[in-house]
Design a protein around this nucleic acid. Structure first.
Lengths: 210, 210
DNA sequence: GTCTATAAAAGGATAGAC
DNA sequence: GTCTATCCTTTTATAGAC
């Protein structure tokens, strides 16, 4: 394979450092140094630091988004009204698939997503495109058909719950090692645990209107 | 009531700004300006910016932690083996109680907690004390008795799920207004939806060992 | 495309007067 | 306890040579 060009090496370095230290905690200097590039390279290839983040985010999110869309297509080709557990798996699965196990993959990507989504700064989230919205809306519609008694507002609440659990789960949010098992759980186990947890949560009967 | 002293006003201003802009996104200058204090006041009263964050975090977390402990005590006084739903409510309830409704309260506190817990920087989380660990451990033990067939590792996974959902739920993680209902849900409704969601998730049968 | 050099600003911390 | 003034570091961004 051809040696990676500067642009790609900058993306790789930025992805790693943004995940480890956050957006604001990462300087252009650290990125270019890790990439073996010159300080001015970020400006030349991307324009600014926030534009670089947008490029990093797009590169991470797009394959996940595409896989979510394909999974839903596959499900709908089989039956027009998929079950809740299958919808959860189609939505959540790509989040794990695109995060290879081990600290050099999944936990880092997960942390990157959390870092991006939870950053208060506007600029950090401005890369979100209509493709993500479209896929999300399709899933909401499918969940709505599988859970006809659930009001739309509560359904949206639960969708956020899915994202919260999958995004946060592998981040060492309890940062000290927990007894029994350490926080970042091995890839496949976390995936199955998350499916159990979320399928049960999504399938809960609607909250009684007070 | 006596006018708030400078120290308190610094805490108030810092709590607000850390929540809105994150730790790194908030300058000492911005804090002292909002507090109507002098630039040097932070250094005098707290020592450094990170010490100020620790003080802010403690002030927010301590009442929540105490309420969680008291809730568990109340539950255990009634029965030695409380039900899952009651444990969830005792654990999650204080997170909502201590966040009065409206943007000036709950959503901001919630965002502060997310900001703190998800910040990659070490210094941001170094305020965690043994009191938090103790309460968490007591809840894990109680959940373990209510769910005897659940392995401890998966139980820890689900505990993280609880925190993820409650902490993230009111943050506008899908930052554009969602159709049907906007993202930050009114206080009491979010509370009841979260209880439904989490009680069902926690009560799920253990994931089959592959 | 890549580099050096530097501009221009912002931030944290602190000394010392009051 | 509070304030002014300032030091020193780090940061992003860019101009211009190669």
């Amino acid at each position: 394979m051809a040696p990676p060009d500067t642009r790609t090496q900058l993306l790789d370095a930025a992805e790693r450092l943004f995940a480890e230290r956050g957006y604001r905690g990462t300087s252009i200097r650290a990125i270019t140094e890790l990439a073996g590039a010159n300080l001015a390279a970020v400006g030349y290839h991307f324009g600014s630091k926030s534009d670089l983040l947008a490029a990093v985010a797009r590169r991470v999110i797009e394959p996940i988004n595409a896989a979510q869309a394909a999974g839903l297509d596959r499900l709908l080709a089989r039956t027009p009204d998929p079950q809740v557990a299958d919808l959860v798996e189609a939505f959540v699965g790509p989040l794990f698939d695109e995060m290879p196990a081990g600290d050099e993959g999944g936990a880092r990507t997960s942390r990157l997503i959390v870092t991006i989504l939870s950053d208060p700064a506007e600029e950090v989230r401005n890369w979100m495109g209509p493709a993500e919205d479209a896929v999300r809306d399709r899933y909401v519609a499918a969940f709505g058909r599988a859970l006809p008694s659930l009001a739309e507002a509560e359904l949206w609440f639960r969708m956020r719950g899915i994202l919260a659990v999958t995004a946060v789960d592998r981040v060492e949010i309890y940062h000290r090692p927990t007894p029994g098992c350490s926080s970042p759980v091995a890839g496949d186990e976390a995936r199955r645990w998350a499916l159990t947890f979320l399928a049960a949560a999504m399938s809960a009967p609607p909250t009684a209107t007070r």
